[in-house]
Design a protein around this nucleic acid. Structure first.
Lengths: 334, 334
DNA sequence: CTGAAAGCGCTTACAG
DNA sequence: CTGAAAGCGCTTACAG
């Protein structure tokens, strides 16, 4: 509202040139301690605040990062986005975020807007579907862009990708269920077209094949509602299923809720494993066995990767997979 | 990475002056349709993208809004923040967000950073506690700032505030429980110092007083973990309690989980009401009765309020309360 | 170590 | 309707 004091006002107040003030601002060793102190005093006195966009016009490094997420209301992504934001803030970046709600048009819009705002880099968990306008803009702008958690852009070299090792996760889950005595293990949740669904079912399919079992896949929107619905469907249509690997924890928690409603004992005649290990898993009853992806740790790693790319020019590897582990709790009879 | 084309490049390509290009950019009616078309063609051909920070240096309106939230991982705030972000995006703003994790120091840091980045306005759900540095910075910068959901800044005139009508919510909840036959209604969760706790207990206290009952308040961190713990504590130490109003839905859902574990029937010998009505309430088993604050609708209203403040200079009223309603489900025996 | 000048990409009067 | 000039708040060579 009120016009902010500028570098010129500081210079006048401290009786130096504005170049000197600029040097002080940028912590140059060239300026004498006494001068520096005087400048700092002047800044405090007149309430000077640095104008980053202006500085950025001449130099570079906007200190702004774009974070674009397909479904921010899903606790898995919430945790990821929040952790990334906080980690980047600790490194001095401001984060402009957008939820794309699995909508390719919205995604293209927010990405364009962020490019106009001059973000230094992007971290994106993209929507699926044949829409290249987003990545075309990104390529044209040349902004460093890291795909996380899911990938869609074809040129992996241009848009490096990192995610937890989903296939291993579902393999671990399935083997655990089989070892615990489950005879028929279904996979519940996930949209079949999505690459992430292919990855999350891969380990389960492999384990099923190894055990000589016919894989039963129940696809659906990965939320609680579908999980609840699946509880009824499984019990009615597939009573032989005694083990379930879920696409994510929301589906598993919905399944738990549905089983509670129909009075089906989870952990005994039906063993359930979730995916992601969101915080709620440990608080549920029965507590939910899940594939721990360590989102918070993954987020920290990604924040660091992006920071090194922007600041030090260190390009991330084209594809990175981080290890997952199975956390066994009551829902799988553990 | 690659230097973006500028307004000058467009001008050269379209054989006009850069002033004309600027006018086209700003949709001025002054420029002839033919000229305008030529400029647009040139922009497309060379892949011009508008440089907002540069424009902002001369004019105003950064098109950037700061969203500062005390606990982004809490689904209530997640829903709020996500809705606000999407609504503001629809109005052409980019949103830089930060989670402060109830930490006043972090809050002061991110607010300063956002001021440096030149955000046009703030929407803040502040941390509690005696820390004025955040609001002092805000006041000094003169950036329009709307307090939402919680308030802490003393000068309401300077920092308008808006939130759902919490007191009415707990009154509705308590009356409903009493009417449903509960004899002893406790309040569970919430840090006693927080103003929001005072507000959320107010209606309950009033209803208790009206019913001539002694109020039992069990304070604690408003999360699932505390809710679970409370289930055990209530059953052991306060077996007479047959109705509970919770600080928020997370506490209520934790309570549900704890009751499931100890085999206590919710909705019959213990009736529970949550607060906020997050999406999960309807998916829980038993489904959770809750005070609906309509976060999404509230968010839309706040986005609109902020937009009118920034764009049209219409100051919000000093304090706004939005109506709440009780959504009755199985957990309260409804 | 410090200052004067030019320039970053845009917008804003001001002429024409 | 269109163009030349100045200026937004900073940084960057370049002198001194």
């Amino acid at each position: 509202m009120v016009k902010r004091p500028t570098i010129n006002d500081v210079a006048r107040r401290a009786s130096v040139s504005k170049s000197t003030v600029s040097l002080v601002l940028r912590n140059s060793p060239l300026v004498r301690p006494g001068t520096r102190a005087g400048v700092h005093r002047a800044m405090a006195e007149i309430g000077y605040v640095y104008n980053r966009p202006a500085a950025n016009l001449r130099s570079a490094n906007a200190g702004l990062v774009g974070l674009v997420i397909n479904d921010l209301r899903n606790p898995f992504f919430t945790e990821f986005a929040t952790s990334v934001q906080m980690d980047l803030a600790a490194r001095g970046y401001a984060v402009v975020v957008a939820n794309t709600d699995e909508d390719p048009v919205l995604q293209a819009q927010v990405v364009s807007a962020m490019i106009e705002h001059g973000v230094s880099a992007f971290m994106i968990s993209p929507v699926f579907g044949r829409d290249d306008t987003t990545f075309a803009s990104l390529a044209r702008a040349g902004t460093p862009t890291l795909q996380v958690l899911r990938h869609v852009a074809p040129e992996a070299g241009r848009f490096p990708f990192a995610a937890p090792d989903y296939p291993s996760g579902s393999r671990l889950a399935t083997e655990h269920l089989t070892r615990s005595g489950a005879r028929t293990v279904a996979f519940v949740g996930g949209i079949e077209d999505w690459s992430v669904t292919k990855e999350r079912t891969a380990g389960w399919r492999a384990a099923m094949a190894a055990a000589g079992q016919e894989p039963l896949f129940l696809g659906g929107r990965p939320g609680r509602a579908f999980g609840r619905e699946a509880a009824f469907r499984l019990t009615t249509l597939h009573p032989e299923v005694d083990g379930v690997v879920c696409f994510n924890d929301l589906v598993a928690l919905g399944l738990l809720s549905g089983c509670a409603e129909i009075g089906r004992k989870v952990g005994h005649d039906l063993k359930i494993v979730g995916f992601d290990d969101i915080e709620e898993c440990a608080q549920a009853w029965p507590a939910l066995t899940s594939v721990r992806c360590d989102v918070a740790g993954f987020a920290t790693q990604m924040a660091d990767t992006l920071h090194r790319w922007i600041d030090k020019g260190i390009r991330p590897v084209a594809e990175l997979r981080t290890p997952v582990e199975l956390v066994i709790r009551a829902s799988s009879g553990g």
